[in-house]
Structure formats: structure tokens, C-alpha cells
Design a protein around this nucleic acid. Sequence first.
DNA 1: TATGATATTATTGTAATCAATTTTTACAAC
DNA 2: GTTGTAAAAATTGATTACAATAATATCATA
Lengths: 230, 230
Amino acid sequence: MDDDPVVQGILKAISQKRLKPGTKLGEDALAQVFATTRIHIRQVLAHLASRHIVTHFPNRGAFLYRPTVQEARDIFAARRVLETATVSTVIDRLDDAARARLRQHIGRETADDRNDRWASLALTADFHIMIAELAGNTVLFDFAKELMLRTSIAIATFEVPGSPDCSPDAHPVIADLILAGDKAGALAAMERHLDEIEQRLNLGVTAPDPDDIVAIFQDIGIAPAKRGAV
Amino acid sequence: MDDDPVVQGILKAISQKRLKPGTKLGEDALAQVFATTRIHIRQVLAHLASRHIVTHFPNRGAFLYRPTVQEARDIFAARRVLETATVSTVIDRLDDAARARLRQHIGRETADDRNDRWASLALTADFHIMIAELAGNTVLFDFAKELMLRTSIAIATFEVPGSPDCSPDAHPVIADLILAGDKAGALAAMERHLDEIEQRLNLGVTAPDPDDIVAIFQDIGIAPAKRGAV
DNA sequence: TATGATATTATTGTAATCAATTTTTACAAC
DNA sequence: GTTGTAAAAATTGATTACAATAATATCATA
């Protein structure tokens, strides 16, 4: 199911932040876009709902998940837990193949001209997924993939427009510390990196515009998610 | 979907180890057992497959997940990562309500007469889930629930018959250390506890009976999962 | 103009039916 | 007694049509 082209397409659109949280994913519309049947789409949406990528409202349809502020914080807290563990494990079991993959990825990141914003976004997410993969634990790997997706949605929900996702040298620094076997340094760098990403989001309890009832209720945990991108 | 009575029933049967790994979960059979329609069962099985509780083989049906030795180890490694993190968080944010819930649960565990093996099994799993809940992170809470389920399946797959799941005083000891605010002690106790559970399983590469071709291929990672409990 | 009720449209959910695949059973051959 | 083949039965998967619900549009009314 995870290798289904429709699932891949939707996940790709999410990680590239082309789909906005709250967007309705209509069955007929998706069936037409991907040239498939409504049943197929229905199965895909059920799968995405099981993975908290999509929220299903009875008789209303599926909407791209919209995290609350608290859930966004929880996602980052979970990432700190998991990714420090995977970084630590990667350093412990570093071999030539792992070193090569790390260097290769950093090479691609630095060579990225950042003109193609979509490709750049996918590339930065791949760094974290690769580290989880190198840790060699399939369970943590699955969790990491899910967390990266939910992070993309959280960023799309709470980012302040115009700011980049993270500083361009964060990944090379972490990779170098891993390659050097500096566990304490790598862990600290990873935590700083995640903190930085989280702090660029607008997760503060800034008093919303008194006229913006959507933002007001959203702060209480009530998401609209009616139709369209809201 | 998680609160669906059929899902609840299947998950309960798994955590009580009444369902053996590899068991076929036929659509018609389940529909009859739960007095519902095949469509409903089909949705439930798809959901369980998304959560790695069940494995779906095309045109063959759904079978209760059977982890390999490596995956079982990965599950326990993931639990060490997550549960040490949640224990640490629980100690940091311990309040009266949390203390009361901890004490209440330990009270129920010690009062348990262990005559009802099924209830006892559910109770021990609840301890770990409760700790994840007290940590107050919904993401980690969801992961913890999934890991507990997969642990139940792993135990059912690899336990040596007759041995208890864990020593009866492990949970009270951990709870006392948490209540005392002894973070280092609680973390160490939790790790010991998880190690103990894992080591009671037969995850070693003991040379299988040369005639038991099922065990032989299972060691290589090829699970039979044909039909029935194998 | 804004609000409320009603009818229409569109979308999701469910049931029934049919096709495809697999598993079982039966039987023949070595 | 085991192996191989073929037919039969059972189970899963897909298509279709229909029912239920929600969203939209229309119209009346204050």
C-alpha cells in the first residue's frame, strides 16, 4: 500500500508542501487526477487516515490533517527523542557503506542550486529519513518517516511565510560530526537543528486578530477543515 | 476507526495473546463472529494492515503479523528509546493526578490474583501504556500503543512456553522510583525490565531442529503464514 | 440586505452481484 | 505411499447500482 502510486503522489505533494492542511481530498477529484477508480482512492484515503496524514469526517470526506499547536509541539518532541536515538545508533554502527551514503547525500544537498524549491524541500527531508534508515531499525525507520510527513504538515500549517525551513549548513555540520564519531557533538547539533526548525514556526500563543474567528477557535483546538484550503 | 468494536476486539485478543501470529483472519469468519458485514471487516483489516498488526497477501487474505527475529529485536530497541523518554518526561511533569493514577494502577496489579490469566496480561500492558499517556505527548502515546501491540505479537511468536512474561515486582519498583523522582534509577529500572522481557524470548540463533523446515526458513526471515495457526 | 426555510445537487457510504484467484478435494500414475 | 494433474469449492477483489447524508442554490420573508 505504501508503494501505491496514488499514496506516493499524495505523500510527495505533502512533503513538498503543495497540499495545504485542511484541503479536502475528494474521492471523485482524486480518482480523476490519478486516472483510477473511486474504490482505489477510498482505500488510499483509509490508509492515510490510519497514518494520521488525513482526517476522515463521516459523510464529509477526507481532509489533509491539520495539527493543533500542541500536536505540532508533540511532533517535534517526538522527533528529538527518536532522532537523537537514531543518530547515536548510526555513530555506533558506522561502516564504509553508511559513510558513503552520508557523503553522497551531503554532496547532493550542497550541489542543489535551490532554484527548484520543490526538489530542495524533498532533499532536506531525505536527510533525516536517511539517518533513520542507517540506524538499521525498521520500527524506528517507519516512525521517522511518519514523523517527517507530519512535520511537513506542521510546517505548512504554522510557518511564517517567507522564512526558509532551516539554515543551509545544518545538515553538513551534523553529517561531519557523525562521520567524526563525535556522538555528543552530533546529538547536540541535531537537537539544535530541530529546535531551530520548531522555533521558526509560529507556535506561540500570539493573541489572534479579534476578527479572525478561524484563528481564535483554532487556538482552542477546534479546526475548521470544512472545504477547500480555508 | 480505533474505537471500532471490531478493532477493539481484535486488539484485545492480541494483547491477551489469544490470537497466534500467522493466524488467518478470514473476512467471512470475522463478519460472522462480530455480527457485521464483510465490507466493515474489510475496512478493519485494511486499518490493521496499515498499522502493521496484520499482513495482507493478495487474493489470500489477512494474517496476524509474524515478526522476524530481527524485527522483534527492533521492537524492543524502539521501546527502550521511547519508554525511557516517556519515563523521563513523566518524572519531570509529575503532579498529583499522575501520582494518583500510578498508585491506583499498581494497586490493581498487586490486587490481581493472577487466576484470570487474560486479565493479568491486559493489566501488565496497561502499565506501559499509562506511562506513555502520563507523558502527555499524543504522538509518543500513539507510538507506545503500537509498540505494545507489536510486543504482544512478538512475545506470542518467540516466548518459550510456560515462562511468565515478567517478574511480578518490576512494575511496582519502577512506579516507586518514578514517584520518588529518582530519574536515573527509574530509567535504569525500565531498561532492565525491558531487557528482562526480551531475554525471556527465544531470539537466539539456536540451531533449529534439522527436520523443522518451518523454523529453519523462519530464521532466514521467510514466514509461512499460510493458513491456520501453522 | 440579511435571514430562514425548502428543494436541488453533489458526495460519501453501503449493499449486492459478478469475476479472479487460490485452496481444497478427488483421482490417476509412478 | 508419494507425486502430479484436474475439477470443485471457497475466498478475496472489483464493479455496479442504490441509499443516506451533507452542501449548495433558490426563494420567500422580514
